[in-house]
Amino acid sequence: MKWQQMLFQDWEGVVRTLLVGVLAYIALVIFLRVSGKRTLAKLNAFDLVVTVALGSTLSAILLQESIALAEGATALLLLIGMQYGVTFLSVRSKGFAKLVRSEPQLLVRNGEVLERVMRKERVTQDETLSAIRSSGGRSIEDVEAVILESDGSLSVILRG
């Protein structure tokens, strides 16, 4: 009997999930379209946190009967509004931008590994070499610069 409840409880829960799921999804898509492309851009840790929070909120709206659609839509709108506010302020204030976004870091300069910076940023030499190979280089000596970007990716500038 108990295993049957794990698989199916009643049709009311299924219908609620379908109805609220479709409406919450539509609300999320509308909010994201209105807020612009930057809301889910792959830029920094803050953007990742917002993206995960949106997914978690949508999941809670779908699966928790105690959360009404209006409350869930308000939570989604709040997260998107906060993200919009942060990006709005970041574009207009360098100080605020520094507070929420990390600066790119130079890891390799003219074939020389900046070990202190790599240690501080927790990047291994193997990760750096992998990025160099992906960019068409063979070794550290082939590189003019390797930069750890704000989004965590490694940019490689090969020597001419």
Rank of each mutant, 00 (worst) to 15 (best):
S59A: 10
G13A: 14
P104G: 03
L28A: 08
K37F: 12
Q64E: 03
L48A: 13
R122T: 12
K37C: 14
I30C: 11
G21F: 02
L19T: 15
V49P: 10
R109H: 14
K94T: 15
G111E: 02
L54H: 04
G137C: 02
L58S: 02
A60V: 06
L32I: 01
L7P: 06
L23D: 04
S155N: 09
N110M: 05
T17G: 14
E12I: 08
S93G: 07
E141C: 10
R38F: 07
V108K: 01
V49A: 15
K120T: 06
E127F: 03
S139K: 09
L77F: 08
G160R: 10
K37R: 15
M1D: 06
V100H: 06
V50K: 03
R33K: 10
S130L: 15
D126L: 09
T57E: 04
G136A: 03
T87Y: 03
L43M: 11
L78E: 00
G160N: 08
E65G: 09
E149M: 09
V143M: 07
V108E: 01
V49G: 13
V91C: 13
T74I: 12
W3I: 05
K42G: 13
Q9A: 05
A97L: 11
S56H: 07
L62M: 09
L76R: 01
L154A: 02
S130P: 15
P104T: 03
S155K: 08
R133Q: 08
T124F: 08
A60T: 09
V100A: 02
L78F: 14
A70C: 12
G85F: 06
R101K: 15
E121G: 12
I61H: 01
G95L: 11
L48I: 14
L69M: 06
R119M: 11
K120N: 12
K98G: 12
R122W: 04
V22S: 14
Y84W: 12
L79H: 01
S139D: 06
L79S: 00
G95N: 11
G152E: 00
A24Q: 00
E71T: 13
L154Q: 00
S90H: 08
V50T: 10
V49C: 15
Q105F: 07
A131G: 03
T87P: 08
G137N: 03
R38A: 07
E112I: 10
V143F: 06
V86G: 03
K2E: 13
G160T: 05
R138M: 11
L148W: 00
L129H: 05
E127Q: 13
G111H: 02
S35Q: 07
I147T: 06
V49E: 06
V29W: 09
G21R: 02
L154H: 01
G85Y: 02
L99P: 11
A24T: 00
Q125H: 10
Q64R: 11
T51Y: 10
L43F: 13
R101F: 09
T17P: 14
G95P: 11
I157H: 15
L23P: 03
L23M: 15
L158S: 03
Y25S: 13
I157L: 15
S66K: 09
L7D: 02
V22H: 12
R133W: 06
M82Y: 12
V14Q: 13
